[in-house]
Design a protein around this nucleic acid. Structure first.
Lengths: 149, 149
DNA sequence: TCGAAAGTTTACGTCAACGTAAAGATTGAC
DNA sequence: GTCAATCTTTACGTTGACGTAAACTTTCGA
């Protein structure tokens, strides 16, 4: 075998925040609104974040910054995938094929919507890029005219 | 000649807002922070927006929604281009080639930065799209497995 | 074991980008 | 000229996503 956990390294909130380029406050906020539950806690109650948590944070920021989504919307998306992931654990306790199918379908649907959103943005950005480049070449022309006076 | 103004149609704030898919309040707000000065006013003081104004509004919304820019940043960009456009009018009063060059250079630089920002976003979106599609095909596989049980 | 560094909760503050309400003035079809 | 629809300014309210401060507790290396 070779799929064992290589090093369950956990980060304190400060380091996690730094690595994900967010503030500790943001992480607590994400937790408060149900976006992110840190993998571990110390006995005293201090949060400990795993690598997967870090990926999740980065994912959140991407959806936020790249797609302009609000955190509520993002929560919906993440919860859809969480349900699917939770299924893998729940699997031993009974392969309820019907429920499994439902969840898979929903996750798939969410994914599909995301694809559409991204595609739409890509189109708009492409259009914008085009007009920017046209403008750019017009500027070049004008600058050239000025230079050989 | 054939470059005369075809129909200087002006819209009242309500209609302008509707066409640009923003609220009247937003238009007043853009004006207040120096983003948009309506082309005309009635004697009584009511705003009248031209087609060009509408384009500008749409442009503002694009920069906002697609690039995630704040209105302050957007103002900087628009003012750069405005300076250049203002130059064409000012041109008769003295073709100050130096100043003209400065403004052109600045506008060009702004445009270049915009191009870079858009390009960066495009890359990120492309990456995101790729992983979304991979996820999608994984879902398809799982769904197929479920269906031929 | 000790203490500086980092963490915890609680609670109020902030900032951008408008929303909303009030009170009154303009517009434009009739 | 009238009057309903639409506009005007002024001003306070709201929402999302945190920032910041206070008071106190945990962690962990020396």
């Amino acid at each position: 075998m070779s799929g064992g956990p290589p090093s369950p390294q956990l980060f304190r909130i400060g380091e996690a925040a730094e690595r994900a380029e967010v503030s500790p406050r943001a992480l607590r906020w994400y937790e408060e609104i149900g976006l992110l539950d840190p993998t571990g806690h110390t006995v005293g109650g201090a949060r400990r974040y795993s690598e997967d948590d870090l990926k999740r944070i980065v994912h959140i920021r991407e959806l936020q910054a790249l797609l302009g989504m609000g955190l509520g919307e993002i929560r919906t998306i993440l919860h859809g995938e969480d349900a699917l992931a939770g299924l893998r654990q729940e699997y031993r306790a009974g392969p309820d094929s019907t429920r499994r199918g439902e969840i898979l379908l929903e996750a798939s649907a969410i994914n599909q919507k995301l694809i559409e959103v991204v595609a739409a943005r890509q189109e708009l950005l492409a259009t914008m890029m085009q007009s920017l480049k046209e403008k750019s070449s017009r500027y070049e022309t004008l600058l050239a005219e000025l230079n050989d006076t």
